[in-house]
Amino acid sequence: MTESELDQCYTELCQALSRQDTQGRQNTELGLARFALLAMLEINEPAKVRSLIHRAILDPSFTLPSGP
């Protein structure tokens, strides 16, 4: 994936989730959860999936932003 392809995918995800957002925040969450499950199947490597879970959520350096 090139930088511009990454940028395009990122924007598409944001736009898709924004559309969900208009129907309620829970739909945004559900969209992300569905995306995570499909990504798990595509990655198809337990070690890689666990590593991503750790880096995305469990890493101690991860803190919630204080602003809105």
Binding site: Q26, E29, L30, A33, R34, A36, L37, L38, L41
Partner: peptide, 15 residues
């Protein structure tokens, strides 16, 4: 949340 995600995808994603 994850359960709903699984259930809503399972019809098209047999795995």
């Amino acid at each position: 949340l994850l359960r709903t995600a699984v259930l809503s995808l399972a019809q098209t994603e047999p795995r």
